[in-house]
Design a protein around this nucleic acid. Structure first.
Length: 591
RNA sequence: CGGGGUGUAGCGCAGCUUGGUAGCGCGUUUGACUGGGGGUCAAAAGGUCGUGGGUUCAAAUCCCGCCACCCCGACCA
């Protein structure tokens, strides 16, 4: 299609609002793609909306190709819908609540598992109707505690969400088959969008195993940390990343007498380490978790001890302990006797109902510095065997295993001798296996061939469409503006008309535009009566992949100027008759 | 939710300490000169100084409350 600049709204600005800090936020604002309406709420202006629609179109094609059918569910839902799955509680304050005129509570949907599960109850009753995959592209709402980073973390945003329904997990028509199909579809989508991305293992859903993958746009400013093994190709979010085998030894001999030191007002590792004159890697950090909904015989508390320079990973604590846990509320933990901020592993012997998890890296060496189980005190020369004793040999009380976040340089879990490397990413897609979490909570079942009720097995698959636009800018820009991949650029070609009131130039532009449109190319014609400098600055800012400049200079030489946005050099002269072909070639080879 | 910061013209900012007619740059409008990387000159339009209260003869400025927005942290199926 052809769009005249003068007939749309592209409010470019020299300066971005002071609030904008990230390149994507600054550029999208300055180039006239978005405007902020409130915290985490944005207008999508004509250029921004075109990018969103280009992404959406690719998403639709790949979803349909993967056998999913599009539909649309409401953003506004009765609050009761969230009761069965308890997400009114578990989603907590992130769930937008709206009271209507009759005083009823409603929710603005953060995602649509409940709505679609409700829909399927009654609509699908036989195993013969499965598998089934439905999707929508819809506005989602999350009452984020802190919206930030422009389009990357919004309270209202555009998301593609798909849900699949199955009779089984394995085999034809099973969850795994659709999951794999979605994995391929996502790979196709982000590849076609022209993004540099990684698929990584993510914190798994209720089914466990490697049942979840995130698709991350590779970008140094990304919010998420991912780790990769160069040898095996293993890649995972830091929340999930396993660590290869590490030696451990709880038997080292004491290095000296356990000595208590006064460390007033220093619950943090760095302050204590400085005060005691030891490095954080010579300290032990013990984090207290409360066991939630523990069965009979389960511990009440799970303690995780890691080296002072390491971070405890809650998911790994759950896995190693076999308990559902949450970070212990400070008041509750203090009441139970924990000197929060000054806890040592010795409490496993003094406070009833404790299970202690020890990271392998926290086992070696003789004299550790650690808390003293008394406020404002730490001790030095802690020794596992001497100071914890027999409990170390009781697997119901003490377990050694991976409970910390992986770090650059850690051994790979998939290739002996290989070390993990870190990278940053922006999450734009997430797929995972839900299992029967929603179907059992809400009563979605079908009859099998023996007329037995079977809960439907579900998967769900999301793509942040508006976030993808921002992530792309984050990944692809220079100091002058955005550099769009052709596939999701608002237009493919920008025709820069130097003198819009010059008949010869106007005719040339019209003819080229017409032929490009005939080839299915989207053309933006800058027909504004502006100085060349302004037009070129705006052209770079907006970032259309190809630029044709039409002015007296080139016309007199029988051609027009052609330039890739990504090229830093000067434009080259192309005969007027050839420029359409050159553009098509440029779009074909990618930009 | 804890800590920090900012609200003055469309955008970026000064003015506030020490109360006394609302300022600057960019942008916008009009005209002229220009015409290949945000040009020059001239004239002009545009502001309940976030909001409510208080102090005062007088408040953008001092005091109190509230709201909005941003950053760090916590949080993020």
């Amino acid at each position: 299609m052809l769009q005249k600049w003068s007939q749309t709204l592209i409010p470019t600005t020299r300066e971005a609002p002071n609030d904008a800090e990230l390149p994507s936020h600054i550029m999208l604002h300055r180039a006239g793609f978005i405007r902020q309406v409130g915290a985490g709420i944005y207008d999508y202006l004509p250029l921004g909306w075109r990018v969103i629609n280009k992404v959406s179109a690719i998403v639709r094609e790949e979803m349909e190709a993967a056998g999913a059918a599009e539909m649309l569910m409401p953003a506004l839902e009765p609050f009761e819908l969230f009761k069965d799955t308890k997400r009114d509680e578990t989603y907590g304050d992130n769930l937008f609540r709206v009271k209507d005129r009759k005083g009823r509570m409603n929710a603005l949907a953060p995602t649509h598992e409940e709505v679609i599960t409700q829909l399927l109850i009654g609509a699908v009753t036989s195993y013969k109707q499965l598998p089934l995959t439905l999707y929508q592209i819809q506005t989602k709402f999350r009452d984020e505690a802190r919206p930030r980073a422009g389009l990357l973390r919004c309270r209202e945003f555009l998301m593609k969400d798909a849900y699949s329904f199955h009779f089984g997990v394995e085999g034809a028509g099973g969850l795994n088959e659709t999951y794999d199909a979605m994995y391929r579809a996502y790979t196709n989508i982000f590849t076609r969008c022209g993004l540099d991305f990684s698929a990584v293992e993510a914190e798994s859903g209720p089914i466990g195993g490697s049942a979840s993958h995130e698709f991350m746009v590779n970008c140094a400013s990304g919010e998420d940390t991912i780790l990769k093994c160069p040898a095996s190709g293993y890649a995972a979010n830091v929340e999930k990343c396993e660590i290869g085998d590490r030696a451990h030894d709880l038997g080292a001999a004491p290095a000296g007498d356990l000595t208590e030191k006064h460390t007033p007002g220093m619950p943090g590792i760095d302050a204590v380490a400085g005060h005691l004159g030891v490095s954080p890697s010579g300290m032990l950090k013990t984090i207290v978790f409360k066991v939630t909904g523990g069965a009979a015989g389960a511990p009440s508390w799970v303690l995780a001890t890691v080296r002072g320079d390491h971070d405890v990973n809650e998911g790994k604590v759950k896995a190693l302990s076999g308990c559902a846990v949450m970070l212990a509320p400070e008041a509750e933990a203090k009441k139970a006797g924990f000197a929060i901020g000054y806890v040592s592993p010795r409490v496993v012997n003094t406070i009833p109902g404790c299970m202690l998890l020890i990271d392998p890296d926290a086992t070696h060496a003789g004299g550790w510095a650690t808390g003293s189980d008394r406020a404002d005190h730490h001790c030095v020369n802690f020794n596992w065997r001497r100071d914890v004793g027999g409990a170390l040999d009781d697997a119901s009380k003490v377990r050694v295993g991976d409970v910390r976040n992986a770090l650059e340089g850690d051994p790979s879990p998939r290739a002996a001798g290989s070390r993990l490397v870190t990278a940053r990413g922006i999450e734009v897609g997430h797929i995972f296996k839900l299992g029967v979490k929603y179907s059992e909570a809400m009563g979605l079942w079908v009859l099998d061939e023996k007329q037995q009720r079977r809960s439907v097995i579900m998967g769900c698959y999301g793509i942040g469409v508006s976030r993808t636009m921002a992530a792309c800018v984050e990944m692809s820009h220079d100091e002058n503006g955005i550099i769009w991949p052709a596939a999701i650029a608002p237009y493919h070609v920008l025709i820069c008309l130097m003198k819009p009131d010059d008949a010869r130039q106007r005719e040339a532009a019209g003819e080229i535009a017409c032929r490009l449109v005939g080839e299915g190319v989207d053309v933006l014609l800058d027909d504004r009566d502006e100085r060349p400098g302004v037009k070129f600055k705006d052209a770079d800012l907006v970032g259309i992949p190809l630029r044709i400049t039409i002015g007296d200079k080139s016309l007199e030489q029988g051609g027009v100027e052609f330039k890739h946005r990504a090229d830093t050099g000067k434009a080259r002269l192309v005969p007027t008759g050839d420029v359409v072909g050159v553009c098509l070639e440029g779009l074909r080879t990618g930009v």
